[in-house]
């Protein structure tokens, strides 16, 4: 799996470098170092270092059986779950705003990973977003996501 991540980094590095060479000038019109000077050096560095790492990792993959299998004591499904739930949470915040979005997210998360105490879970899921909202919005005058769908609270 590390190989896939490295290939993704390499692809991003290639795009970064392509942009640096294609769009940004190494020297400015006055002959000074231009906006492309640093990005071009960085881009070449990222691509060359990542390419070496990809080749090394590909060799390691060939020498390893079950390269793509996760370690026995790891929980890749759980990591995927929390990442997907976080993505949905951001969408929920955009649609419903800070308090309703957070309550729904917490209830869903507790329902999935901590089912033992439903009443306590519900109290925490409701109280925590309200307290955080009060802290940021009322006490610190910071803004909170309002949500696109108008709700009465």
């Amino acid at each position: 799996m590390r190989l896939i991540f490295m290939i993704a980094v390499l692809a991003a590095g290639l795009l970064y470098t392509f942009y640096a060479f294609n769009t940004l000038n190494f020297l400015s019109a006055s002959g000074r170092l231009g906006p492309g000077f640093f990005p071009q050096i960085l881009g070449l560095g990222i691509v060359s270092m990542t390419l070496i790492s990809v080749i090394t990792e590909a060799r390691r993959m060939r020498a390893t059986t079950n390269y793509f299998a996760a370690p026995a004591d790891a929980f890749p499904g759980s990591a995927l779950l929390i990442i997907c739930m976080s993505v949905l949470y951001l969408i929920g915040l955009r649609l419903f705003g800070a308090i309703p979005g957070s309550i729904v997210f917490l209830l869903a998360m507790f329902w999935m990973i901590s089912r033992g105490k439903p009443i306590l879970n519900t109290v925490i899921a409701v109280m925590a977003p309200v307290l955080i909202y009060l802290l940021f919005r009322q006490l610190l005058s910071a803004s909170m996501p309002e949500g696109l769908i108008p709700l009465p609270f």
Binding site: I82, S102, F105, M109, I113, I124, A128, I132, S143, M144
Partner: peptide
Amino acid sequence: APLVVVVCTLGTFSV
């Protein structure tokens, strides 16, 4: 953990 996700997200937005 879910509470930390909420604090991280709302904290980032508030900046």
